[in-house]
Write a protein that binds this DNA or RNA. Structure first.
Lengths: 226, 226
DNA sequence: ACAAAAGTGTTAGGCATACACCCATGG
DNA sequence: CCATGGGTGTATGCCTAACACTTTTGT
């Protein structure tokens, strides 16, 4: 039965993953340095081919681990990019993904396979291979939109965090300042956070109460006004 | 150069299109009847393979014409489905699309290639081939969500329409009644509609004013409250 | 004591919601 | 003249947005 498909033109299916975190007050994306021409000078999203025995999701998760050293992450399919000449090596259709990790997971990023793995602020990207700039720009738009109506920010924070840190996630990705009092009022009224015992002291000032998400399972919540 | 990809496992890439319209007070989807086993008794979304020289978008639009006889339609990529055994004939990854057409375009649906092409209310679907039920359910969720924050309803209506017809699109897809006065107030306040000369008479009662969308280009507008 | 971030409440205005009657037409 | 859907306005409550001072800590 499988034979019947052989006669059709086959393309190669790959997956590319835009891995984001927020650190140093900026939204950053993880890139790996290309070794081969014609992209020797370029950086690229981690990714690779989808094998015959795995789904696109599984392939994305596999490349997340082997190419970027990231084990646990929020992962969501973004869009499928299929421009005919997007890859100079041949016809490659790419199923792109967004991954989010908390900034305290950052240590795991170097692997044997790729010496050059680095975070770049999305406002200051190097030359990118393929259509990866387009993918990143699309991913940022999706991320900003989802921030407003889901609890997706939980995937960018450690288990316990301060309200200030949560607010900074929003301000960084949305690119606008938010009123502290209104932000706290709104977030606390949604009952998606719970206070946990303990405070975080960061300098010569009052320590901040720690909070946690009641559920870190992604789901829709109207967090900011339209 | 192209040779270098030959060694990798190749999958076949297809596209499936969920074509929707609203008629007879119901959201309906266009299905075609399968001829081959093991899906002889089943209906399926129109679709087919993506060729080496076309993007997924182009393939979707091509199949829209050849398989379903639909020429002009709103078209949007939905999601890529990649379960390993979703197609019994072999590894086929499908890039699924949503298409929307106005209910006055309905005549074009029969083609030579497929005798059996029919609209089905989404509440009453026949047995479906592959994972097409899953695709349709996902498409409906996306459609309902986009109705609330875009002008996508314009793609389901003829150029000129009454406010009642517009409201029915919303009520049908969202599955809940809307207050007539509030709906009109809101839609007219958004300045996305313009009144056009002429009225539509449909029975023994006052004729309804005709309206048109100022722009039928899809874009975001907050139409209903969160 | 001072610098620096944490934490807290009120007010005004806009928007969504709820709700009932008159209008124009065909039969 | 009656049945049918088209068309309209107001009042209430909620939520958003704007805004400034006190508290707690380290140095």
């Amino acid at each position: 039965v499988k034979k019947s498909l052989k006669k059709y033109s086959h393309a190669v299916i790959a997956t590319d993953v835009a891995i984001f975190t927020v650190r140093e007050g900026a939204l950053q994306v993880l890139l790996i340095k290309m070794k081969k021409e014609p992209y020797r000078r370029s950086w690229a999203l981690p990714g690779g081919l989808i094998q015959g025995t795995e789904t696109a999701d599984q392939a994305a998760r596999r490349h997340l681990g082997t190419k970027a050293g990231v084990r646990k992450a929020y992962l969501e399919q973004l869009y499928t990019f299929s421009r005919v000449n997007r890859d100079p090596f041949g016809r490659v259709v790419s199923v792109a993904y967004i991954a989010l990790i908390p900034s305290d997971n950052l240590l795991l990023t170097t692997t044997d396979e790729y010496a050059d793995v680095r975070w770049f602020p999305v406002a200051d990207l190097p030359p990118l291979a393929y259509d990866h700039r387009e993918i990143i720009e699309y991913a940022i738009r999706r991320l900003a939109a989802k921030l407003e109506y889901t609890n997706i920010a939980s995937s960018l924070l450690p288990a316990e965090f301060t309200l200030q840190e949560l607010q900074q996630i929003y301000e960084t990705i949305l690119g606008r300042p938010l009123d502290k009092r209104n932000f706290r009022k709104k977030l606390l009224s949604l009952a998606i956070l719970k206070g946990v015992s303990g405070k975080k002291t960061t300098g010569a000032h009052r320590p901040a109460q720690l909070y946690a998400f009641v559920s870190r399972t992604p789901h829709a919540v109207q967090i900011l006004a339209p």
